[in-house]
């Protein structure tokens, strides 16, 4: 088996596709097809680019239903299903809240909106109010100031679509990741073992890496979410609190504290949604086919967040120690 590696920039991060195959020429071609699929989805889901389909929806779908591509309808339906499954804690309509918190754009420095502002934000949040009409292939944003931000799910969606392309090309062994926070492991690694993903402690300084856990992926996907990413520290005089770029759709509050969530499932889209949802609400009840946990960093190290339904996960045989 030979290994080929293709890395490229997309969705403001670095994507990487590693393939093991007896035919490296074929593997490279398959990786390029997967790359094209990811770039296509990036162009479609770009929140900022006026030329993207998502941007057009945000501009025009408040005034009534507008036509979407079948690919976008599939993605929005996946959002709908995951919104429901996570009891509303995964919600792509949080875009105005991110803006209000100053966590939207690269140049933003962060701010805490007033309670009144947050109340107004919560009123505009709620993916259940987004109308999807599959027969007409239309979407309608029914609430004033409502906007969609697919940042919480687009990487997973793109990786799932890329995986499909690889599988259709006959690729059996591959590792794909977007920004290291969402990954898919197919088949076996070069040592014939399941691909093992290490979850790193984002709060440790110095020469690392400082692994929290290692997770083997058996034709599965993994997603990690945390407060760190885009974040700011608010110093109230009494306490210094870190606020991160994930919003609680129920309160309009940004997540805070030293938190990390991990989700493992067959689909990267599912993982992305669940790791986001668990970050805002650790007590969520998770379907059996998904492994997920919310972790808190305390003075004594990482521990399961109170109420996290998979708090026992850290003791399962699925977790591998790193040397």
């Amino acid at each position: 088996m030979e290994s080929i590696r293709l890395a490229f920039s997309a969705m403001a991060t670095r994507f990487e596709i590693v393939i093991l195959d007896e035919n490296p020429v074929h593997a490279r071609a398959a990786a390029e097809e997967a790359q094209r699929e990811i770039l296509r989805i990036e162009a479609q889901c770009n929140f900022y680019s006026p030329a993207s389909e998502l941007n057009r929806i945000n501009r025009e779908a408040s005034g009534g239903p507008i036509r979407c591509t079948a690919a976008m309808m599939r993605l929005l339906q996946a959002c709908k299903d995951l919104h429901q499954a996570t009891q509303g804690y995964f919600d792509p309509t949080i875009a105005p809240a991110l803006k209000s918190w100053g966590l939207r754009n690269q140049a933003d420095t962060g701010r805490i909106p007033s309670e009144r502002e947050r109340s107004a934000l919560v009123a505009a949040i709620g993916f259940e109010t987004v109308d999807l009409d599959h027969a007409a292939s239309t979407v309608c944003l029914t609430q004033p100031h409502q906007q969609l931000d697919l940042g919480g799910i687009a990487k997973g969606w793109a990786l799932d679509e890329a995986r499909l392309v690889l599988e259709e090309s006959g690729i059996e062994h591959a590792l794909l990741h977007g920004g290291t926070s969402t990954a898919i492991g197919l088949g076996r690694d070069p040592e014939g073992q399941p691909w093992k993903i290490g979850v790193e402690d984002p709060y440790e300084q110095g020469d690392g890496p400082f692994w929290i856990m290692g997770i083997p992926l058996r034709d599965q996907a993994l997603s990690v979410s945390g407060v760190r990413g885009k974040w700011f520290i608010h110093d109230s005089g009494e306490a210094r609190i870190e606020y991160g770029h994930v919003m609680d759709p129920m309160t309009g509050m940004a997540v805070s504290g030293k938190r990390l969530t991990v989700a493992v499932a067959n689909s990267a889209t599912t993982c992305d949604a669940w790791s986001t949802a668990l970050l805002t609400h650790a007590e969520l009840s998770i379907p059996d086919e998904i492994m997920g946990t919310a972790l808190l960093k305390t003075d004594s190290g990482w521990t399961a967040a109170p109420g996290s339904p998979r708090s026992e996960w850290s003791n399962t045989a699925d977790l591998l120690p790193f040397n």
């Binding site: 020429v25 074929h26 490279r28 390029e32 097809e33 006959g170």
Partner: peptide, 14 residues
Amino acid sequence: KTSWRRSSSSSERA
């Protein structure tokens, strides 16, 4: 920067 090659699980189709 691309191989300009297309992939298929079938070598004949490739």
